[in-house]
Design a protein around this nucleic acid. Structure first.
Length: 111
DNA sequence: GTTGTGACACATT
DNA sequence: AAATGTGCCACAA
């Protein structure tokens, strides 16, 4: 059983599915929020995906930096220490980043 | 139980 | 092409 800081139950929720999908993103690839939402089960959970990553209970196993919006651009509010941080992480995975944008045609994860 | 919010996506202006 | 509005779902107060 897993509980959040408010004591509410947290396992077996949509979040877990989202986390599972994000964790499946292979190194060197990225996925869009819509993509993750779709793989998680519903194409309309894109916002929930963002929220799920926002809480990000396990940043060590959940590479949230591999999740980008449909433009292939990292979210502005993502900057948990500078947008450059995210770019560096992506480049570290061998992903080409152009002006903070990723070539989805090349680096998007195709399951 | 109702209201407001959000790391999105899509359609329309 | 860019900006704005709408839908969508889950979560917090």
């Amino acid at each position: 059983m897993v509980y959040n800081i408010y004591g509410d139950i947290m396992d077996k929720s949509v979040f877990e599915r989202i986390y599972d999908v994000v964790k499946q993103i292979p190194r060197g690839k990225v996925a869009t929020y819509g993509q993750v939402a779709l793989l998680a089960g519903n194409p309309r959970w894109a916002r929930v995906v963002g929220y799920a990553l926002h809480v990000n209970p396990d940043p060590d196993t959940i590479p949230c930096y591999r999740v980008v919006n449909r433009e292939g651009r990292v979210s502005p509010a993502f900057a948990f220490g500078g947008e450059n941080m995210q770019v560096l992480m992506l480049e570290g995975d061998g992903i080409k980043v152009t002006d903070g944008k990723v070539d989805l045609s090349v680096c998007q994860w195709l399951p």
